[in-house]
């Protein structure tokens, strides 16, 4: 049933949709909480705003077992190589959410000490603004990422389909 490259055919599209569905419904985040945003990330995982309903309460400490890296907090110059190494240790497919103003753009700290936006170090799929973003904002960001994956727009963090 395989058609041409841009029309893969009925069977493969359904398979792709199924694979995307499984990927989004059980995405395991790697613990990369750095600063204040980490506290709000923990709040999103706690009972009041439960991240487990999206299949994501299992924060894996080892990046090798994680799909999603939520960069929560300000990334300093000393931490940037560590961030890159953790990202490299994750297996494909992997996604990155940049949580908070400091991770997205350097936030209010436009100075020598911070990397002005974590997208200078790793490719980012979803940016969640806020200082810190409340749990609802983070959940909105996660759901946006899920929608993007489901629609086939991104299959892994490099954004290449």
């Amino acid at each position: 049933m395989a058609g041409e490259a841009d029309h893969p055919g009925f069977l493969l599209t359904t398979l792709e949709k199924g694979v995307n569905w499984t990927r989004t419904r059980s995405m395991w985040p790697a613990t990369f909480g750095l600063a204040c945003c980490a506290i709000e990330m923990m709040a999103t995982g706690a009972a009041h705003n439960d991240m487990a309903r999206f299949g994501m309460e299992v924060f894996r400490a080892s990046p090798r077992q994680a799909d999603l890296m939520i960069v929560a907090g300000r990334v300093s110059q000393k931490m940037a190589p560590v961030l890159r190494q953790i990202y490299d240790q994750m297996a494909e497919p992997k996604w990155v959410i940049s949580m908070g103003a400091c991770a997205s753009t350097g936030g209010m700290f436009n100075n020598y000490a911070l990397v002005q936006g974590v997208d200078e170090v790793v490719p980012v799929d979803v940016y969640v603004p806020g200082c810190p973003p409340g749990p609802q904002s983070l959940l909105h960001g996660i759901l946006t990422l899920q929608d993007k994956i489901m629609s086939g727009e991104i299959q892994n963090s490099t954004g290449v389909v």
Binding site: G106, N111, Y112
Partner: peptide, 13 residues
Amino acid sequence: PLRKDFRIGAIPV
């Protein structure tokens, strides 16, 4: 960094 002649290092937005 905290010396007064060390600039804050802000990048233009």
